[in-house]
């Protein structure tokens, strides 16, 4: 019972992809979620709908459009070529971009719920104590929204680990670059190598179970009922 070098490489690649994606989503998702939670603009509902799209869209649709959009004949791809950059499909940065889109709602929605639940009152109190906007965010919002952050981080990470359809469409199956865990399992099954497929699948099952268990335990302990 030992994993092949390619499989170990796939596991590391998957963890790296999930970590980078989650970190970037935290940076992009926090202001977006904050805006969604506070704004009264008519744009709120359309933006919220776009954010939620990856929940409903089949990953193959996303992957298919990304392949066309990011390819050298697509608008984004040709722009990148004009700028002297490499196109994104079949590269690790390409997978990060795809994963960020794919896991966006899993980060934004728990955060948005957490931010909404805080309400105006704590922020107004902090403002009367002369806390600046940044100060209010760092010392009031973040601690109060902690369960939301935790839920967002864990879900975005786990969802990226399980990503398959999008990566299959734009990955090109390159070891160390785009050959992630879910694709490795798929390849093993297709090649009738059920032994290795079982090993990786069982590992992923255990991982998923632990993630959800942990999340539930932590959320129960904080008793906030925030997030999902």
């Amino acid at each position: 019972m030992s994993l092949s070098e390619t499989d170990i490489q796939a596991i590391w690649l998957t963890l790296r992809l999930a970590s980078v994606t989650t970190l970037l989503l935290l940076l992009v998702g926090t202001p977006l979620a904050w805006w969604l939670a506070r704004t009264r603009s008519w744009l709120k509902q359309p933006v919220a709908a776009i954010t939620a799209l990856p929940l409903v869209l089949p990953p193959t649709v996303l992957g298919f459009y990304l392949l066309i959009l990011l390819g050298p004949n697509g608008p984004v791809g040709s722009l990148m070529l004009d700028l002297g950059l490499d196109t994104l499909p079949f590269t690790f940065p390409g997978l990060v971009v795809a994963s960020m889109i794919y896991s966006l709602p899993f980060m934004v929605q728990p955060l948005q719920n957490a931010f909404s639940a805080i309400g105006d009152r704590p922020l107004e109190v902090a403002a009367t104590l002369r806390a600046s906007a940044l100060d209010r965010f760092l010392t009031v919002v973040i601690p109060l929204a902690r369960p939301g952050f935790l839920t967002g981080i864990v879900l975005a990470f786990a969802h990226t680990v399980g990503e398959f359809g999008v990566i299959l469409m734009i990955g090109g199956n390159i070891p160390g670059e785009t050959h992630v865990l879910s694709v490795a399992i798929y390849d093993h099954v297709e090649a009738l190598d059920y032994r290795n497929a079982h090993m990786l699948s069982a590992g992923l099952l255990a991982f998923s179970f632990l993630v959800i268990l942990l999340l539930n335990l932590v959320n129960k302990r904080t008793h906030q009922g925030l997030g999902q």
Partner: peptide, 13 residues
């Protein structure tokens, strides 16, 4: 080299 999962995907690439 970029590999499609099957020949249809190679064609698509």
């Amino acid at each position: 080299l970029v590999q499609g999962e099957n020949i249809a995907q190679a064609f698509q690439f």
